[in-house]
Design a binder for these strands. Structure first.
Length: 562
DNA sequence: GGAGACGGCGCC
DNA sequence: AAAGGGCGCCGTCTCC
């Protein structure tokens, strides 16, 4: 039995020219990386290890040899762990165009086991597949070191060995459906995300808003301090104060609880008002500018495809998928088009509902979604047997039922959220499901799932039987995950079809059902058409039985195009 | 002073 | 806080 220490570092580079039959595992190590900036050009090249058999390893120690390295792997199939990192940094020195034959052990593991495991690090994979314990202390040394040592080189070599051997095991486990999801959905999306450019920020406008918010928030904070003698940001102190002075025991100080007591205790409303401004100060304030906006005025988020158990993409450093929009559109208005450019955006209308319609094959819902009418008004009208207009509160209730349904809402939750009796909630939901019987059947069926559920593309989402949320995951993951499949396919298609002779790949933002581009004004029309085509084609591929609707807009800033 | 848990809340 | 899913980031608090 070979251990992960059974490998031989080859005395000389370069490595041989690998052939199209070779599977070559490569791993880069960097000096001076900082947390939160793994996707930025910081840090220096440390070394790079290569193996095509899981035993012999070539280690490149000089950045000047990377050109030679590139020629050796130009035709090979590649194996990487979290390829996005290695490719991003290698591109600082050598070309690294997208290639179809790349096995990313982390992405593949997510496709095999999202929801089943939580840890997709190389250390976890070594334990899982090779029954090997990997000491990661050396990895930390790279952060501060500037010179190579033998143990660092060995560490680098060992990682490529692990990757290579793990990949062999994963390939045995990958069925046709796994390969389809990986090669048609996640991998093309990964290549696309690597080429996203950073959106441009109207720094001065943001700063002005942020300064105002900071002043207001600090002033309010101090007033609470003076009046109440507590740090109002502290949940324990807040609870204690409410108990002592208002004689009320708060189970939580979350918005819903505070709102429920705010009629009787106006202090609760004061807290809620403060929390709003405090959120803007802390999360979307001056520190955001300082931390994330770079010298060119742009922010460079990191997209992690399939980070979520459902397969959704996540954004971080900064997270651009939770920039305020409801109460304060100003922040999105600070995402602007550069000189001579324009923003072009597309979003899927009722994306998750359409996914649910496809998955359940409910003909009534499919037909309604194809009709082009306002589905919430229509459903409310059908439930109540009379015309319900857009401003009728019964439309909102119907919307809650529809959206709640795909989140696994129960009648108790429905009653609570809509402020109705449980009987009313039961009646409303019953009436709703009477209209869409196959949706009801599908949901009943989903709840019976014990091991996993699947998206429309066949992506598995494993359920945790020890988690009380498993039932709601079973109801939601297929819709959420199918929508994520759709967006990733769209992003991949756009990336493949974008003509870089016009200008470099122009995508700047992906917010689940929304994709934004920043293009030269003269390219706006062809960008709109291509964006629509890619999004529509992805929709037709993932949910062929349901009409896909894409709204395309353009404008000077993000507020214009949402 | 850093790490991690927790509560809270921004978005889809 | 709860009988609505999925994230990431902030501040507080605790521990080391």
């Amino acid at each position: 039995m070979k251990t992960i220490n059974d490998f031989i570092i080859q005395p000389n580079i370069p490595s041989p020219i690998f052939t199209p039959d070779d599977w070559v595992s490569i791993d880069i190590e960097m000096f001076g990386m900082q947390r939160g900036k793994f996707h930025r050009p910081v840090g220096e090249f440390a070394c790079l290890a290569v193996t095509n058999d899981g035993e012999r390893v070539w280690v490149y120690k000089n950045v000047d040899d990377l050109g030679t390295f590139w020629r050796s792997i130009e035709y090979a199939n590649l194996i990487l762990q979290n390829a996005s990192f290695d490719v991003y940094h290698l591109r600082r020195w050598i070309p690294f165009p997208p290639r179809e034959s790349l096995h990313d052990t982390m992405l593949v593991e997510r496709i095999l086991y999202n929801g089943y495991y939580e840890d997709f690090s190389l250390k976890a994979l070594a334990r899982r597949y090779l029954k090997a314990y990997v000491e990661k202390d050396v990895a930390k040394e790279f952060e501060k070191a500037t010179t190579l040592t033998d143990d660092k080189i060995e560490y680098n070599a060992r990682d490529t060995i692990i990757q290579w051997r793990v990949a062999q095991e994963q390939m045995k486990l990958m069925k046709k459906s796994h390969r389809r999801v990986y090669y048609e959905v996640d991998l093309p999306a990964m290549w696309a995300f690597l080429d996203f450019k950073g959106p441009l920020i109207d720094t001065e406008r943001w700063r002005q808003i942020a300064e105002e918010n900071a002043t207001t928030a600090e002033c309010t904070f101090n007033k609470f301090q003076e009046k109440w003698g507590i740090n109002v940001r502290s949940v324990p102190q807040l609870k204690k104060w409410f108990k002592e002075y208002l004689h009320i025991i708060l189970e939580s100080t979350g918005a819903e609880v505070l709102d429920s007591v705010s009629k009787k205790h106006p202090e609760a409303q004061e807290i809620l008002d403060y929390r709003k401004i405090e959120k803007r100060r802390s999360t979307y304030g001056l520190s955001w500018l300082k931390k994330y906006v770079e010298e060119d005025g742009r922010v460079y988020t990191h997209y992690d495809p399939s980070r979520a158990e459902s397969g959704r993409t996540a954004s971080s450093d900064p997270n651009l998928q939770n920039i305020p929009v409801r109460d304060t559109p100003v922040f999105r208005e600070c995402f602007i088009a550069g000189e001579g450019n324009i923003l072009v955006g597309g979003d899927y209308a009722q994306q998750e509902i359409r996914c649910a319609a496809h998955l359940s094959q409910d003909k009534n819902l499919i037909d309604l979604l194809a009709s082009g009418r306002d589905i919430y008004s229509e459903i409310a009208s059908m439930i109540h047997g009379e015309k319900v207009e857009k401003d009728d509160p019964r439309r909102q209730a119907a919307k809650s039922v529809v959206l709640g349904t795909i989140y696994g809402l129960t009648y108790i939750g429905m009653a609570r959220r809509e402020g109705m009796s449980e009987e009313e909630a039961i009646a409303l939901m019953d009436n709703f499901f009477d209209l869409f019987p196959k949706l009801r059947d599908w949901m009943t069926n989903q709840q019976r799932a014990t091991e996993y559920v699947k998206t429309a593309m066949g992506r598995k989402c494993w359920l945790n039987p020890h988690n009380s949320q498993a039932i709601r995951n079973a109801l939601n993951s297929p819709s959420q995950g199918s929508a994520a499949d759709m967006m990733k396919i769209a992003v991949g298609l756009l990336h493949q079809r974008w003509d870089t002779n016009l200008e470099p790949f122009p995508a700047i933002l992906q917010v689940h059902d929304e994709l934004q581009l920043e293009v030269k004004e003269e390219n706006a029309e062809c960008a709109k058409e291509l964006l629509r085509n890619c999004m529509m084609e992805a929709g037709e591929r993932v949910i062929p039985s349901v009409k896909t609707v894409v709204d395309i807009k353009s404008g000077r800033h993000w507020g214009d195009v949402h």
